[in-house]
């Protein structure tokens, strides 16, 4: 019974990660937009929903005690707007600028979460976030299973919607733009608008995942949204194979299994005072793993990006780009 409960708990977390990875796959896999600050968008969703749904708290703004569904919608809207603004600032420039800006977004969101006590509760975070099946908390197994059911349904809806989107004309335009960054920039406003849309929808999905997680644990704090989160999700997408929604989901479950498994292992193998060091080693190992996958199997398990040869057309474009001055 215990094992089943743990299994449900594990799978719930893994599926929430899957949702973030699906959002990233829309941004990176389908559209080629590089987001190294996704932890920031997840945090925006979590805090927005927490703020909207928690009971009134004298120490900070809100909460507004609204229904959970309103919180989730609010999270998507705010996350989507934040992503759209980020996109608008950078999508007429080379992709590196988007990378740097998203990185900055995550830093600033982290800063606000830590320091804007009136809004976010500061380092102690926000508690008493309503849970969808809070009344079942007495029987952990039932509680875990119902959480899993909710998260599964949301992930499935997101998955089907994204599958549909990537096959639609809209998705085909995005793929075409992904193949040729130069064209995407030079095609001007219309192409840029497509990319902003994709980035915003991706951001909204990440924010929704953040909100789900918040309502699933009932408590959030700035520590949940460190760069390590961004890193985990990237590894999940790369392992699964960027461009594939199925790969995003399976990669997330797989990497989360490795992560949780190696975490359990280090906690057994190392004495408590060495735990922090062991955790660092775990991160280093996974960082190396990411680099190795990029080197030897850049398509991951299910990726759709053809590996290009040294002198392919694309390489020619890249060479032309580098020869056109800085």
């Amino acid at each position: 019974m215990d094992l089943l409960g743990y299994g449900a708990f594990f799978l719930t977390t893994a599926l929430i990660f899957s949702l973030v990875t699906l959002g990233l796959n829309l941004q990176w896999g389908l559209t080629g937009l590089f987001n190294v600050g996704l932890a920031g968008f997840v945090a925006i969703g979590a805090y927005t929903s927490a703020l909207l749904t928690t009971p009134d708290d004298a120490a900070r703004l809100g909460g507004f005690g609204l229904p959970i569904l309103v919180g989730w919608l609010g999270a998507m809207v705010v996350g989507g707007i934040a992503a759209a603004l980020t996109g608008m600032a950078t999508l007429r420039l080379r992709s590196d600028y988007l990378a740097i800006t998203t990185f900055g977004v995550a830093v600033v969101v982290q800063l606000v979460a830590l320091n804007a006590q009136k809004l976010t509760g500061g380092p102690f975070g926000i508690g008493f976030i309503p849970r969808p099946f809070g009344s079942l908390a007495e029987t952990p197994l039932l509680f875990n299973l119902s959480n899993l059911a909710v998260v599964s349904v949301v992930t499935l809806i997101a998955y089907l919607a994204l599958e549909h989107l990537s096959r639609s004309p809209w998705g085909r335009v995005l793929k075409a733009l992904r193949e040729d960054e130069r064209a995407a920039i030079s095609l001007g406003k219309s192409a840029r608008f497509y990319r902003v849309q994709a980035f915003a929808v991706g951001g909204a999905i990440m924010a929704l995942a953040g909100a789900l997680q918040a309502h699933f644990t009932g408590f959030i704090a700035p520590d949940n949204y460190l760069p390590i989160l961004t890193f985990q999700v990237w590894v999940m997408l790369i392992v699964g194979g960027s461009g594939s929604n199925l790969g995003a989901v399976i990669g997330s479950i797989l990497v989360w299994a490795i992560w949780a498994g190696s975490g359990t292992l280090t906690s057994i193998l190392f004495p408590p005072e060495q735990q922090a060091r062991a955790a660092a080693l775990q991160i280093a190992a996974i960082g190396v793993m990411l680099c190795v996958i990029l080197l030897i199997r850049p398509n991951g398990l299910f990726g759709d990006r053809p590996r290009r040869s040294r002198f392919s057309k694309r390489a020619k474009i890249a060479a032309g780009e580098s020869s056109s001055g800085s």
Partner: peptide, 27 residues
């Protein structure tokens, strides 16, 4: 990775390397 001609993959690899390097120091 550079020789494969996709600049942004290199950025991502540098992100992974950054995590690994920093964690090794912490270790």
């Amino acid at each position: 990775l550079r020789s494969q001609g996709q600049a942004i993959i290199v950025v991502m690899a540098s992100f992974g390397a950054s995590m690994a390097l920093r964690s090794l120091l912490e270790f």
